[in-house]
């Protein structure tokens, strides 16, 4: 809170800092690090980067799903989708709050996002082209996110871990509603099944990309694991996701678009094909199908709202004695 937030701006970094021993001891004892604790500058920066990107992902993630609110096929689906997109705004807010305890403001993070200096999950740079895509986002994208977020509830930084507990609890319906959309489509007409298959065809590989580069290419993973920010490696999480999801696709009668996918009884896991890493890096670099549109939308909303925020500050300054 207040004083905790200002405390962390002290950035005296030295191996001999008396706080370091305590920090190491907290990690070793699986205790949470709290904002007021001394922490290495690298730990703080890594967390800010990761939590801000996570927050941005929630907020940018509102767009692809928001794209279908006005066209949802039934009023019940419309209500569910609105509640889900609203939850994502809430989750973005919880995460921005967690990052703010590290001595950065939300305004600053928003600015970095708008300037392309902080990123968000690449998955949201793909367009939603049919109703099935709303199903796929819930089923696959939220499925992948949950795999990751469950791990993050054990993250060493208290505010992030607490935020994740709340988010995981609230998101439990997200994946189910997505799967239910897919199930309804797959039990429907030929046209609906085709819609579902087309959706899976487009969302499968980007979902696998959500877990990031191979462990062998993931340069910062080791440090994050040592700091207990990250608890399971990219490849392990990806395998876990594939093992979980393929039987679900089978149940739906859909074909996963990977000719190399097959059960490996020796490993006790599914073997699967290689991600198109050129596409992966292209999207990270800003050349995905929707990168520019997503940021343009966000910037437009922020700048269109500037006069509203200013008006409310001016009113507060005049009427409640709070200076804007």
């Amino acid at each position: 809170m207040a004083n905790e937030r200002s405390f962390v701006t002290i950035s005296v970094v030295s191996a001999q800092h008396p706080g370091r021993a305590r920090f190491e001891a907290l990690l070793a004892a699986e205790e949470k690090v709290e904002p007021a604790d001394w922490m290495p500058e690298g730990y703080r920066k890594t967390l800010i980067r990761q939590i801000a990107q996570h927050a941005h992902s929630e907020v940018i993630g509102m767009q692809p799903e928001g794209n279908w609110i006005s066209r949802a096929p039934t009023l019940k689906r419309k209500a569910i989708l609105m509640a889900k997109v609203q939850d994502e705004a809430g989750h973005g807010l919880y995460l921005y709050s967690a990052a703010e305890t590290l001595g950065i403001t939300r305004d600053e993070m928003v600015r970095l996002l708008h300037e392309g200096k902080q990123k968000y999950s690449s998955i949201f740079n793909y367009p939603t082209l049919s109703w099935a895509d709303i199903g796929c986002i819930g089923w696959l994208v939220d499925g992948a996110a949950i795999t990751n977020q469950v791990m993050l509830t054990r993250c060493s930084f208290g505010p992030y871990a607490r935020g994740m507990v709340r988010i995981c609890k609230e998101e439990s319906f997200h994946q189910r509603q997505g799967f239910q959309i897919m199930e309804t489509l797959c039990r429907g007409s030929a046209e609906q099944r085709e819609m579902a298959q087309d959706g899976l065809g487009r969302w499968w590989w980007p979902s696998l990309m959500m877990f990031g580069p191979h462990d062998s290419d993931s340069t910062h993973s080791d440090q994050s694991m040592a700091w207990k920010i990250k608890r399971v490696s990219n490849d392990d999480l990806r395998q876990q996701f594939v093992d979980m999801t393929v039987p679900q696709a089978d149940y739906l009668g859909l074909t996963v678009p990977d000719p190399e996918l097959r059960w490996n009884p020796e490993r006790g896991h599914y073997d699967f094909g290689e991600i198109d890493w050129d596409e992966f890096w292209a999207v990270v670099r800003g050349n995905g199908p929707m990168n520019r549109e997503r940021i343009a939308h966000k910037r437009a909303a922020w700048y269109d709202g500037a006069w509203v925020r200013k008006a409310a500050s001016a009113y507060a300054a005049r009427h409640t004695g709070q200076v804007g």
Binding site: M82, A83, A89, A300
Partner: peptide, 22 residues
Amino acid sequence: LSGWISRAPDLEEDIAMANIAL
């Protein structure tokens, strides 16, 4: 009102407008 979702002046108001629309 649901047209405001992801377009409100700030995140808090985004959530508020979605609540009313719901």
